[in-house]
Design a binder for these strands. Structure first.
Lengths: 331, 331
DNA sequence: AAACAGACGGAACACGTTTTCCTAAAGACC
DNA sequence: GGTCTTTAGGAAAACGTGTTCCGTCTGTTT
């Protein structure tokens, strides 16, 4: 027992002031047991007067729950993790649950350290999220776990992912519906699952309208600019579907520099709806919104259900949303 | 007492297995009290065998501390909050403290909700961080608080801020040292403290070299581009110091479109070192790094000291760091 | 008036740990 | 050999809450 922290009133103080026992005070404040309304009111008044707030630690111990969930993220700086965090935090705070943040920085040592810490805190459940969509090894803890964004390699675990395949498909369908028939695809490294999935969906949806093979490079504006140079040399295209908004922005910049009008000469689509890129691009990008905040919310809700006793629900795939803007529609 | 959660071994189980009392087991595992080494070892082995992890809730109750700090942020999505969070989390996790995340979304109702929740959890301390550098009203809680990024209006509180004035000064000195003598300043809205402070520092450091008044607009690439049009009409400049990297990127883009070489004709500096902007800009931006992660770390350390009993230390101002890149140095 | 049911509230224990005493055994000293 | 000190370990209380169980008191019924 270290030095006592700040002195805050305990339930016994409230009980004493109201002239009842602690158990009665507890019942009054929690609306349980059989008490006269007058007694309840007296206790409530005493609690108010003292500014009493029940101690979560005692409560946790008594209830067997900590009303806390852990969020393990491989990099919290990632633009993917943040909206997920926000969504999860939103859904959890509604249920009076707190979120403790653990950023492993992709370090296995850190991860095991944090896992021990979360287990020690008797967290009610854990959300695991990654930086990439590659499946990851499940964690071994004695409490419910939900994987978000990067699913568990064990299909029996609960994982929430977004439907990238469907997203890429919707982008291509959009281009086709606008009459584009010579579509190129520029995306990230072939070593990234996202790039491969999006490319496969694009090829399948475009069919004969796909020009050449998908071009793989880095997830950068620079690569987008360079890819345009390559495409221009190859032949003519009337649309470029990109694997990310960064690439798409680079594509737009280079097209403008070459005197090709977007979208009149070439329509461009992005992916991710990363506002910093999609809105700052000239013109603003038609893109696929991943609805990551919804993904976070859904993840948290599934976790809450599992904490409530529900069984794991396997892999849940969430729809994306096409956001049409000037890069395909014009002004 | 709700349904029992996952069954994990308690210290009594360890004690029973080792054939000692619980108090002895506790002492053995915590290296306190007077025990034979052989007994200690026996207990340790039993703990290991059972996979025992002490329950943080019981521990918190007994120690009077929760080993948890709250982080109240007005928007966790902000690119300023995130590095601060990371730094804080880094410094805290080293001390076995967990960080619970509270995103108020700039809503007073949410804020008071979270404050109640944190007080209920008997958090050991709270970090308050904002989206802007404007001072904010202090919070009233019975535990140590440190304000980061946006200081408390009460100078007696502990606040950690960055030295924007010094940062802007260093950028201008850098331009002067490169021989630039006709410097314009393009920055954000005059209603933002950051813009005003940075502009004042720029004017003071530039002296006669400052061309015209600081140009106030939005924190956007679009405004940067537009400001270049204005400046070109006004007269000739050989350097533009910008209030943010976004503005600077817009400035660079427009200068290139107008055929002005950066930095040969006009040198450009940014502010914030937001890599998405600073590195993607053509050319990459010389800019002022705010060292937000260090700010977060420092904040957390000060909080830990206050939790340990130290007195508030008033406003602490942290130095920024000039990062020279091609937009002033050339290739 | 006696028996009974129901309303009300308190005593005690549980949750899991740490810590403060306290006791018994073993050794040291005269 | 008796007293004193040291060592090793246990019993009990503390932290703050929720809940179970039980006793009392009031009012109703026969």
């Amino acid at each position: 027992m270290a030095s006592r922290g700040p002195v805050v009133p305990r339930i016994t103080d409230v009980a004493a002031l109201a002239g009842v026992s602690t158990s009665t005070a507890s019942k009054a404040l929690n609306d349980t047991g059989q008490l006269r309304e007058e007694t309840r009111e007296r206790v409530r008044r005493a609690a108010e007067q003292l500014g009493f707030t029940p101690d979560g630690r005692g409560r946790a111990l008594s209830s067997g729950r900590s009303y806390t969930v852990g969020l393990i993220t491989t990099d919290s700086s990632g633009r993917f993790s943040i909206p997920i965090m926000q969504g999860a935090e939103d859904a959890l705070s509604a249920g009076e649950m707190a979120l403790v943040l653990c950023d492993t920085r992709d370090d296995a040592l850190r991860e095991s350290h944090y896992l021990r810490s979360l287990v020690a805190r008797r967290v009610d459940g854990i959300i695991v999220t990654g930086r990439r969509t590659e499946p990851r090894a499940p964690i071994d803890v004695p409490m419910p776990v939900v994987y978000a964004f990067s699913p568990s390699t064990d299909p029996a675990d609960t994982s929430v992912v977004m439907d990238e395949y469907g997203g890429a498909t919707s982008a291509v369908r959009h281009l086709l519906s606008l009459g584009r028939r010579r579509i190129a695809h520029v995306t990230g490294p072939a070593t990234h699952r996202s790039a491969v999935v999006r490319a496969a969906a694009t090829a399948a949806a475009a069919g004969d309208a796909l020009i050449g093979e998908p071009l793989h490079g880095e997830w950068s504006e620079r690569w987008g600019r360079h890819a345009v140079d390559v495409l221009v040399r190859t032949g003519d295209v009337d649309a470029i579907s990109c694997g990310s908004d960064q690439i798409a922005r680079g594509v737009c910049d280079r097209l403008r520099e070459l005197g090709r009008a977007v979208p009149d000469d070439v329509a461009v689509t992005g992916f991710d709806n990363w506002s910093v890129m999609a809105l700052a691009s000239r013109p603003p990008l038609t893109t696929v919104d991943l609805r990551l905040e919804e993904l976070g919310r859904r993840t948290a809700r599934l976790l809450l259900e599992m904490i409530g006793g529900a069984a794991p629900s396997g892999v849940v795939s969430l729809p994306t949303e096409l956001v049409p803007r000037e890069s395909t529609l014009g002004t």
